[in-house]
């Protein structure tokens, strides 16, 4: 094998995937209600303004939210040692929504940052309860954990809905429960960079998170500070889920589909697979957002709804296709 072929084999797939993601982002920049062409950017100051105030933030928000949610799912699966859980099916997202509701009632004029902070705290509490209970379930019944998560998330969600109904805030709740990017403007999405930073943190600790997924006994045997890594994972999952709920709302299935898709082909050694999972999540959310913008142009369909359909179909496909031998 020549040097050039070796380099191509090693970096070829990553370069191709990155290229595809950039192409998708470029498409996203020029799809929308207002006509915008690449040429106009140079001649028309208004076009440039629209680009910087709306299209760029929207595209970045979709990429950040998608990548981060995929990683939240991946880390959640390592924490629960179960492939079929993600923040939105384990009560994390619902707890975050409950937190936002709480802060809206008690402190209506709270800035976005404070809302996010409260949502992170309630998401942490909700996820801790989920994990503490899920670790008591018999490991011989892998479907009990996601089943329990769905019931638990349903209960927390129902509490939020009931409270919102009583307080006449159902419409408010709706904006957090259906994820959409149409409201994303410059100054309204920057909190998502924190979610991006948490993805970097997850990558930094990838080996520890992989060992965590091997279970407590193996982890301690290998000298892992099991409790500390568990707490770190909990923070990553809760913070990413809460930040995306506050900024764009609930986007389902990304955390389930992206990790399971990559796991089939590349396994679960997170140091190698984590960037792929993040990229897949980013591409999935951005394409669903573009589809939502185009499908009944000039009106928009929220990304949460598009992903509900696309994600469910992809996930069922993954389940029924079985697992490859790699």
């Amino acid at each position: 094998m020549t040097m050039a072929t070796a380099v191509r084999l090693k970096f070829g797939p990553s370069a191709a995937a990155l290229g595809a993601l950039l192409a998708l982002a470029a498409v996203s920049l020029f799809v929308g209600v207002s006509e915008l062409s690449p040429g106009a950017l140079f001649s028309d100051p208004q076009a440039l303004g629209l680009m910087m105030a709306s299209r760029v933030p929207r595209t970045l928000a979709a990429l950040l939210a998608g990548g981060a949610l995929a990683i939240a799912g991946l880390v959640m699966q390592a924490l629960a040692r179960n492939r079929f859980v993600e923040p939105s099916t384990a009560g994390t997202t619902q707890s975050a929504a409950l937190g936002v509701l709480l802060v809206t009632v008690l402190w209506p004029e709270a800035p976005l940052g404070w809302k996010a902070a409260v949502a992170v705290v309630t998401a942490l509490a909700g996820t801790s309860v989920f994990l503490a209970l899920a670790h008591r379930l018999p490991p011989t019944q892998p479907f009990l954990v996601p089943l329990f998560g769905i019931v638990y998330g349903g209960v927390v969600g129902a509490v939020a809905t009931f409270a919102a109904w009583q307080l006449d805030l159902l419409q408010y709740l709706e904006t957090w429960t259906t994820g959409e990017f149409s409201g994303v403007l410059r100054g309204r999405y920057e909190l998502l960079w924190i979610a991006g930073a948490l993805v970097a943190l997850a990558w930094w600790t990838a080996d520890r998170l992989t060992i965590l997924s091997l279970g407590r006994d193996v982890g301690i045997g290998l000298g892992l500070n099991y409790a500390a890594v568990l707490r770190l994972g909990l923070v990553i999952v809760s913070a990413i889920a809460a930040l995306t709920v506050v900024v764009v709302g609930i986007i389902p299935f990304v955390g389930l589909v992206a990790p399971n898709l990559i796991s089939r082909f590349a396994g679960e050694n997170l140091r190698h697979t984590l960037p792929w999972v993040a990229g897949t999540g980013a591409a999935l959310v951005l394409s669903c957002d573009i589809i939502g913008r185009l499908i009944r142009f000039p009106y928009e369909i929220p990304v949460g709804i598009v992903l509900g359909v696309v994600g469910a179909a992809l996930f069922l496909g993954l389940l029924f296709a079985g697992r490859g031998d790699g």
Partner: peptide, 26 residues
Amino acid sequence: RQDPGVASRLRVAELVGFGRFPHSGG
């Protein structure tokens, strides 16, 4: 341990490599 229930999708070489974690930290 008896039956540690390792379910992660790791390659055999990767799993064995994690045995070096205490020394190299990954």
